[in-house]
Nucleic acid binder design. Sequence first.
DNA 1: GCCCAGGTGACGG
DNA 2: CCGTCACATGGG
Length: 265
Amino acid sequence: MIITIKDDFDLDKIAESGQCFRWQKFNQGHYFIIHLNNCLEIKYLNNDTYELSCSQEEYNNIWKDYFDLNENYKAIRESIPKEDTFLTEAANMEKGVRILKQDPWEMIVSFIISQKNNIPSIKKSIEKICVSFGNKNGTYYTMPTPEKLSKASLEELKQCGVGYRDKYLLSVAKSIQELDIRSLKLLDDEHLLIELKKLYGVGDKVANCVMLFGFHRINAFPIDVWVKRILENEYKDGYPMEKYSPYNGIYQQYMFAYYRNDRRK
DNA sequence: GCCCAGGTGACGG
DNA sequence: CCGTCACATGGG
């Protein structure tokens, strides 16, 4: 089926934005995406039109929400005050990035693995975990449930290339079974952060990434090495966190992607 | 071989 | 409360 998306939406920018680790790239503007037990092939055609491999019903029920297409990112981007020249420039350059609504459990696993790690390595480890412990669904493997992962051994986990994070993953898989993601969804931002940080191996950075990308708390503001550099270099007099509420998470993604892309040149 | 990668927990002051 | 350190592994 063909759909039209008028809002800011750039598949390549999203794929490169460091929030999703299981998108498979066919070509520029052409991806295979796994979300829970669903998969999608999506291809940019032209003039805001995209070809999707799913039905209209599946798009309405799953993918529209996954891509956060009920939110107006253009309006949010244009509400950035012009006097913040750095953020304005970052948002212009990274226009098209969105905050995906991904599975909270998958985000917990993914961002625990992400600590002190690089993106290609993170992707490989996550894929190995899915192949080793997940279910096969057609041509791809799903992320194993907490129940399934909790039955893995440290030795098996280590073979997925996760290094010292094996004990974090095992502990968290066991904790989450009792914690129940559904009850976490009911908490406000402040209490959700507290609960996530109780998990072994989940600190301030990982918890904020899980909040932003898994629980869609778009005001969460993960501070990693890149954002730390941004705050030190571009906001010497302080970052206006209150002023930018409730969009701190979206703005953080613009800045993160912009700085990271710039420094890689 | 050396250095770094979307950090965290444990420890000492 | 702060600063420091080890932590596994892969890739350049």
